[in-house]
Design a protein around this nucleic acid. Structure first.
Length: 881
RNA sequence: GGGAGCUUAGCUCAGCUGGUUCAGAGCAUCUGCCUUACAAGCAGAGGGUCACUGGUUCGAACCCAGUAGCUCCCA
């Protein structure tokens, strides 16, 4: 059968993926083997596959496939996250397109639509992962809002509440006016902004003017948010500020609404900033809130939940907050109350999901008491610092510690419908209990008020933060919270490796560690591999709006999954950002093609019995076999070292070079029979064996082509499919082969290139060496690779020749034609000059008493060797002249 | 404002506890080749004052200090 010149991935990929699936090779059940477990960072059901997923899941697949090949019981659990805010926004938008408003339908109706949406689109991303070759145990696919996982969430919430780790409280929280929900601090992204700083004057009241003996005047504050002045309750100055000391206790009027407010003093104030006067708006600023509490001031919330001016503001009612800012500035200007404006840079919080500008708002919400949590579970921090849980790269340990040490309470309630509803029930008086379900809640109420009936109770309307379910993921996917048989949980947990982006280190990684120690007393995983963020060539993040993100599925269609996997992995050491460039994926495709053609080559050879080939060929083939065996083991050791350090790109590069340089350019050329000649049976078998071994090394990285060719080598009947073959082991002994003689090949090629000679022109060579034997064994191979038609040793140097050094041995190539003697001489002279310079520095070192006295003996020995070698070389080069 | 990290070839990055036959890899570039496995290829070659300035040391890409630039995290 004729094989195509180019590797064609499409047919191959779907064929083998189906084969693996049909045979259940991805599936795992507990047995006596050592488990190796990864839980997928569950993608959002709203998500579609992007380059970040590609990187992330390729790495997981590499790890899981390698573990599987190493005989471990490999289990990669896939699944999806319900993504409360994102999904709710999607569904709201879809309903709006149909002319339905969320407020017009019931909660149950809305959830019906949401589930419908989830069932239709929620699994798309998992199907896309299959195209990549992800070897997840699809039988284990979980969803954060399915029944079992929801039960786990309730269970944990109730437990934490009863343990005093969750409380309901009224605090200042982050409000997303677009999503109309509160957010945790982690969901707020700070962005730098160019803002106007308005200097607004608050006129003194009559009373104050009288006391001061003035006819007019006021206090000027600097603010970027004039639209909140209707919520002002005081002006605050520093108690030591000489400019304002005398005004403390006096009153001023809030512009626009002319409400009277006091001037107070607090050392929180920064005298240098603005005018040194701060307008205190406790309802809309964290610091103002604190000042307000301290001075017992009222908090007037002047905004509605969607960011418009509330009735209680008394002016501009119904106007959007940003429109109001402009309007009020204009009006104040007209009234002469704006002294000046300045441009400043400040940072403004935005919603991670909706990108709306966050408002600070006082609200009654549910919180996790993090200080208490951390004091009860110190392992959460120490395990990472002590490397019981290893971060790769370790620089993220600092980031982790810093966050942990400054941790704030976690706001976990969201004013949404799509999510896990908070298991708290209220009676008509507003008392509440936390319970697993309504029946339990009713019982609890009845203990105090026996007459309570179910109709009196209503469940909290809010749902929990998405991450409140995600943090349980490594436990809950193995039903670790479920009563009864915990076979899976006991076997698979703790998991081995977690692969994720550093952007969710706090959202997810940290909280999984918390959940692990708090609910199971055990770490959730042993290693965390932080991938980089994928950027384009200009270092911009990939985003839909920039349009700089290629569609991964298009890439797979164009370059093949293996090619894409390789391209994306090659330049992605852990923690470094990946600058994506299509040329990398091309490189991946080209590599596939290279491997494919190596197979084509050997598939086309005619085979004969060993007796049919000459002894010379046999010996040459055997040497080549041993030589490649050495190269193979050396590379295998390096590849394992890369895995140990989680430097997957280095492992992959090691394989790349092993295959391309050592196997194809080296080994195959060595054993390749002359055109039209056959290959011996034993050599072909050795080649196939080596080929098969490199495919094994490659399989975790490029699963499809390695399976395809593995099957092809064994004519479709291998003992095992590649996916189950044993991964080559590190540290196996190998015979060291002295291949210094092979340098003759590159020297000759170089000479031909430099002289513009055809490779077809044969040369004879003369080597001056004390180790004749180490060259003799390679003669056949060298002759083949470099077109040499004669070898001689330690004879008279010919008159006309080209020369080179092989280590300290000399190589002469008789060359009858024109030689640019001057150029040759110059080349040698330059070499001598370099060596002399080198020798001088070595000599200087060796004659330095301090060096000899201080340096380690082996270093000195090395220097002496260098000196001897350099002297030897110089001697030879000089004598040649 | 606080913290962490980075700066090595045109690009992306390796360089472990300091020891110049280790300044390296891949890609890109250049030269010559359509040599019956592969032009998605083959054979070669040229690129670097290791950000800058000082210091420690017999010896610094590596350790220390300062300067400049960049990135990230947190407020």
């Amino acid at each position: 059968m004729e094989l195509d010149k180019h590797y064609n991935p499409q047919a191959v990929e779907s064929k083998w993926y189906k084969y693996w699936m049909d045979n259940g090779f991805f599936n795992s059940v507990p047995d006596e083997r050592e488990p190796y477990t990864i839980v997928i960072p569950p993608p959002n059901i709203t998500g579609i596959l992007h380059m970040g997923h590609m990187l992330n899941n390729t790495i997981q697949d590499v790890l899981i496939r390698k573990a599987r090949m190493e005989g471990k019981n490999a289990c990669w659990v896939p699944g999806t996250d319900h993504a409360s805010i994102a999904t709710e926004a999607k569904v709201v938008k879809k309903l709006a397109e149909q002319g339905v408003k969320k407020t017009d339908i019931t909660r149950d109706e809305f959830l019906g639509h949401a589930w419908e949406w989830k069932n239709k689109y929620g699994g798309i991303i998992l199907e896309q992962l299959q195209k990549l070759g992800a070897s997840c145990d699809w039988n284990r696919t979980r969803f954060t809002m399915e029944e079992e996982l929801s039960n786990a969430v309730t269970e944990v919430f109730v437990k934490m509440f009863r343990d005093g780790l969750i409380y309901r409280g009224t605090k200042m929280v982050n409000w997303d006016p677009a999503g109309k929900t509160t957010l945790s601090d982690e969901e707020v992204i700070f962005k730098e902004n160019n803002s106007q700083l308005y200097f607004v004057t608050y006129p003194f009241t009559e009373e104050t003017l009288k006391a001061l003996g003035l006819s007019e005047g006021g206090l000027t504050v600097a603010t970027t948010r004039p639209e909140t002045i209707m919520g002002d309750v005081a002006i605050c100055v520093h108690p030591e500020d000489e400019r304002y000391k005398h005004l403390v206790g006096k009153t001023v009027m809030v512009p626009v609404i002319n409400r009277v407010i006091p001037v107070i003093a607090d050392d929180y104030i920064d005298i240098e900033f603005g005018t040194g006067c701060l307008k205190v708006t406790p309802a809309h600023d964290e610091n103002d809130y604190r000042i307000g509490e301290k001075h017992q001031l009222e908090a007037i919330d002047v905004l509605t939940e969607d960011g418009k001016i509330h009735e209680r503001a008394g002016a501009y009612v119904g106007l959007d907050r940003f429109a109001c800012r402009k309007q009020i500035a204009k009006d104040l200007e007209e009234q002469g109350l704006i002294l000046k404006t300045e441009q400043i840079k400040n940072t403004v919080g935005h919603s991670e999901r909706t990108d709306a500008v966050i408002e600070k708002r006082i609200s009654t919400q549910w919180f996790v008491d993090m200080k208490e949590f951390m004091s009860r579970y110190p392992k959460v921090l120490s395990s990472v610092m002590d490397d019981e849980i290893k971060f790769h790269p370790p620089k993220f340990k600092n980031v982790y510690r810093h966050w942990m040490e400054n941790i704030k309470d976690w706001n976990i309630s969201r004013q949404l419908w799509w999510g896990h509803r908070i298991p708290a029930w209220y009676n008509k008086e507003g008392d509440f209990v936390v319970a697993k379900n309504q029946d339990e809640a009713l019982e609890m109420f009845r203990l105090k008020q026996p007459n309570t009936v179910a109709e009196d109770l209503h469940q909290d309307e809010d749902v929990l933060d998405t991450w409140y379910s995600s943090w349980l993921w490594p436990i809950s996917v193995f039903d670790g919270f479920k009563e009864g048989d915990k076979k899976d949980y006991n076997y698979y947990y703790p998991t081995n490796d977690l692969v994720t982006g550093p952007d969710i280190i706090f959202f997810w990684v940290a909280r999984m560690i918390m959940a692990g120690y708090a609910f199971n007393g055990e770490k959730p995983f042993s290693n965390v591999y932080f991938t980089g963020i994928i950027r384009d060539k200009q270092r911009r993040k990939m985003s839909k709006s920039l349009g700089n993100s290629p569609d991964p599925l298009d890439l797979i269609a164009q370059y093949g999954a293996d090619g894409v996997r390789m391209g994306i992995l090659l330049s992605s050491p852990a923690g470094n950002d990946i600058l994506y460039d299509e040329s990398q994926v091309e490189q991946g495709r080209n590599f596939c093609n290279k491997i494919w053609n190596a197979y084509r080559l050997l598939a086309g050879w005619q085979v004969v019995a060993d007796q049919e080939v000459s002894e010379e060929i046999k010996a040459g083939d055997q040497l080549a076999n041993q030589w490649f065996a050495m190269k193979f083991q050396m590379a295998t050791d390096e590849i394992h070292a890369g895995f140990t350090e989680y430097k997957l790109s280095e492992s992959l590069m090691g394989i790349y070079k092993l295959i391309w340089d050592d196997f194809c350019s080296g080994y195959l050329e060595m054993v390749k029979p002359a055109f039209g000649s056959p290959i011996s049976e034993s050599t072909l078998s050795a080649v196939k064996n080596h080929f098969e071994n490199i495919l094994r090394l490659l399989h975790p990285f490029m699963p499809f082509i390695s399976e395809e060719l593995h099957q092809a080598i064994f004519e479709g009947k291998p003992e095992k499919p590649m996916i189950l073959c044993e991964y080559p082991k590190a540290g196996l002994p190998y015979t060291v082969i002295n291949d210094q003689a092979l340098q003759i090949v590159s020297e000759l090629r170089n000479m031909r290139n430099a002289k513009g000679l055809s490779p077809k022109q044969a040369f004879s060579v003369l080597v001056q060496t004390p180790n004749e034997a180490s060259y003799k064994v390679w003669e056949y191979t060298i002759a083949k690779l470099a077109n040499v038609d004669g070898f001689s040793y330690n004879t008279q140097k010919p008159e006309k020749c080209l020369s080179a050094l092989i280590g300290t041995d000399e190589l002469f190539v008789p060359f009858a034609e024109e030689i640019d003697e001057a150029a040759e001489k110059k080349k040698i002279e330059e070499e001598i000059i370099y060596l002399q310079g080198f020798l001088k520095s070595v000599d200087a070192k060796l004659s330095n008493e301090k060096f000899v006295a201080n340096a380690k003996p082996e270093v000195i020995e090395k220097e002496r060797q260098k000196k001897a070698d350099a002297e030897e070389k110089i001697k030879k080069l000089m004598s040649g002249n």
